[in-house]
Design a protein around this nucleic acid. Structure first.
Lengths: 353, 353
DNA sequence: ATGAAAGCGCTAACAA
DNA sequence: TTGTTAGCGCTTTCAT
């Protein structure tokens, strides 16, 4: 119908103004609900806008306001169920503030990640939530972005950066895991994780080692297996473990995430290793599929909603500080929430039977 | 450092121009790579930009160009692995065109979906890819959006709309499924799907019914169970099936997606029903977890990359047509790709044994 | 209460 | 080749 400019025929505020016989200023005031306007004006403007099918052009609005009401989020992989559920939580938390989410997938590649971050900056998002792909390589891009915009790191934390962070206390979590396994009778244990390229992995291994040592559990070097956060790696690790353990496998296999644990339990089944009878297995994250494993996985539940809420809160605070003209970066917050253990069937709850 | 306006201290093209001692037009030409500029100019401008840490403000650029190089995508649920992998495919296809993806989750709710679509329009995305949440309720919002922007429906199709569509031929897919089960010895079958609120569900049931009838397989009304695309529903359905089948369960259970099938196989295990010995089970989509079922699922593999590529192609074509000033909507394309069966362990390949 | 007008940062005619 | 300038659609002083 309305054909104008290179605009694809979109109705502008000027057209609404003309039809209503008022100025563009009045239309803006009425439609954005700011400022005063008589009831009569409101009615007329509203009608004209409805008749024309007017929709605000948020690009123009963003340029004028230098605010987009949009938060960018970058995750290592959108196909990892843990991150998708985290995204969901963040989206809900943002929705409560009337903000929207611009989601980017970094494909677990720091270079792609850097491009995504740059693009989010160019788009003037109000803030950025990022779960860095790599424990060191992600550093420069993350820091550079944080220098320009409010930014909070989620779940994982990159070395060499100075930004807000929200995640779980991996050390405390692993302590619960190892204690539980020990109660279930485990006196030796293996750890299957990802290469130490991100903080989660490092911290979880560290927490595992520390508590296992405390309890005097046997942990051989050959039982620390690091590669990838994938089901395939979990499966392969069991083969390595079986091959590399002359005296038989350890009593327990602690996995750095649920995908790995799912692979581990699957391979155990294939190798005829009874879980939890012969070997106890634990995961981490409590993704939806964790309960679907055979047996259902004992794992660590991450308080996603809480993590998301805290992140959004920090972002809002940072935005406010920036708007207040605080050139100096305020102090940073590192918020570690303590997750809880979800006991299912892949461990021997309540001691040996 | 640079503090200016309400801009958060971002460097503008004017500042770069000043530092380089040239006009803003020259800076624009150099940095966007369009138009001519001497080597000397390019050097000077580039240096000034680098020194200042200039980054283009894509909001301003978008307002000027009325193009954002961004495509919006709306999926029913970001936690459904099928959609996330579809998103990944779309992102890759878009990346090849230098475009980015703005992803929205409709939470399987047509109202949320309508809001997302409106927001994408407001943001001036160049086009929209949507997998509608509901077979009828999604109609008005989708059509209204399609009237304003290039839009293609993916996977699912809403009744009462006139837009491009790319997906799979569900009828042909189901034919393959039923044939395979029949070869495996099945003479009766149940169907577990979602309430008939979307085209996939409808089509798949229709395809199932038709082929089962062709082959003379028994299909009782009590064996058509419709609720949700969830694992939980798959589990519940088995209980209903067991309770409601005096003469014993059917020889096969055809599921409308892999999540349901995963629930079904799990419940069968719990009920001591051997799969595929007593009952054969099939899924649909071939999500990553399909092979992790116990037994691994026979399912229908959707050609995601192909679907994504076609969608992006259609969008580009529509954008071009729109730019060419074609006010009249061109003819619509409905592209149905034929998926192929992936045979794993939940069915009896090659006839009864 | 309403309107006129400036300007957010960028690009593309058009001039020089 | 380079510069001047208008203007994308919106919001917001500042007058009236």
């Amino acid at each position: 119908m309305q054909q104008r400019g290179g605009n694809g025929g979109r109705v502008t505020i000027a057209e609404v103004a003309e039809r209503a016989g008022v100025s563009t200023a009045t239309v803006s005031r009425v439609l954005s609900g700011r400022g005063q306007a008589s009831a009569e004006m409101r009615r007329r403007v509203q009608k004209a806008a409805d008749d024309l099918g007017y929709r605000v052009n948020s690009i123009a609005r963003a340029l004028r306001n230098s605010r987009t009401d949009t938060v960018g989020m970058v995750v290592p992989s959108i196909t990892n169920p843990f991150f998708t559920s985290l995204v969901e939580s963040v989206e809900h938390a943002l929705g409560r503030e009337g903000k929207e989410l611009f989601l980017c997938d970094a494909q677990s590649d720091p270079e792609v990640e850097a491009r995504r971050l740059a693009s989010l900056v160019a788009r003037n998002v109000d803030g950025i939530i990022v779960s860095p792909s790599h424990g060191t390589a992600s550093g420069p891009a993350v820091q550079e972005t944080a220098d320009r915009l409010p930014l909070v790191q989620l779940d994982r934390f990159v070395g060499g950066t100075d930004t807000d962070w929200v995640g779980v206390d991996d050390i405390a979590a692993m302590r619960q895991v190892v204690d539980h396994l020990h109660e279930g009778g485990a006196r030796s244990a293996a750890f299957v994780g990802s290469r130490l390229t991100n903080s989660s992995s490092e911290q979880r291994l560290e927490g595992f080692r520390r508590r296992a040592a405390d309890l005097g559990m046997a942990v051989r070097d050959a039982w620390i297996l690091l590669d990838d956060y994938t089901v395939e790696w979990g499966e392969a690790a069991v083969a390595e473990l079986a091959a590399g353990s002359p005296g038989g496998p350890p009593d327990a296999i602690v996995c750095a995430d649920d995908l790995i644990a799912l692979g581990v339990t699957r391979a155990c089944r294939a190798h005829g290793i009874d879980v939890p009878g012969r070997v106890q297995v634990t995961g981490f994250d409590n993704i939806e599929f964790a309960r679907l494993g055979e047996p259902a996985l004992t794992t660590v539940d991450q308080p996603r909603d809480r993590i998301a809420a805290e992140a959004v809160r920090l972002l809002a605070a940072a935005a406010e500080a920036a708007a207040g003209g605080d050139a100096a970066p305020g102090s940073r917050a590192h918020i570690a929430l303590v997750p809880h253990l979800v006991v299912r069937d892949s461990t021997r709850a309540g001691g040996p039977r």
